[in-house]
Amino acid sequence: MGRNRENLVRHLVDEYALQDEAEALELLDKPAPNDDVLEWYSRRGSASAYYELQKLDLGPELGVSGSRGAICFIDGPCPGNDSLIVTAQDMTSLSLLRARLNEIEAGILVRPAMW
């Protein structure tokens, strides 16, 4: 078993309180139900920015009245969509976010994604 697979098996055992590695290996060999994959992607896989940034003090430059930029945290943008999304109002907001993360030494890389 490769190192990445071994790490994944250990993670599954710990994260999901499985009995042993054999149970984790059995899960890995089964196809995941589509609903589970979608739930993981929208609420965990793509949501790391949402969770990480929401915990931080982003400072006075972002998101308050009279501020120079805005970062929006969106929890489920429409019915039937459980995505957790972080958006920047504009490139200035993105630049201010990067500056603030560097200032507080958050260790978070910010890259724009085009939808």
Rank of each mutant, 00 (worst) to 15 (best):
S95V: 00
E21W: 02
V37P: 00
L56T: 06
S93R: 01
E103V: 00
R98F: 03
Y51S: 07
A32F: 11
R5I: 14
G107Y: 13
A22H: 06
S46T: 07
G63L: 08
S48H: 10
E6L: 15
D14I: 00
G80T: 06
H11W: 10
R3F: 10
S48P: 01
D29N: 13
T92I: 04
P112M: 07
G45R: 02
A47K: 07
L18M: 14
G107R: 13
E52G: 01
L56P: 03
A106R: 04
D90K: 10
G63I: 04
R10N: 14
E52C: 07
A17R: 15
I74P: 03
A106L: 05
G59Y: 06
D75C: 07
Y51A: 05
S83Q: 13
A49Q: 01
S65G: 13
P60N: 14
A47H: 01
T87P: 03
L96G: 02
C72R: 14
C78D: 09
S67W: 02
R10V: 03
L38Y: 04
S93N: 02
Q19K: 15
R68K: 14
G66W: 10
G76L: 11
C78S: 12
W115Y: 13
A113W: 06
A88D: 04
K30F: 01
S65H: 14
A113N: 13
N4W: 08
T92V: 08
P31F: 05
T92D: 01
L58G: 06
P33T: 07
D36Y: 08
V110G: 00
R3W: 08
A70M: 14
L28F: 00
R100Q: 15
R44A: 10
C72Y: 13
G59L: 07
Q54S: 11
I104P: 01
L97Y: 05
L62M: 11
R111K: 15
E21C: 04
A88V: 12
S65M: 11
L18V: 07
V86N: 03
E61F: 07
C78G: 09
D75M: 09
L97F: 08
Y51Q: 06
D90A: 08
I85P: 01
K55A: 12
G45Q: 03
N102K: 15
I108M: 09
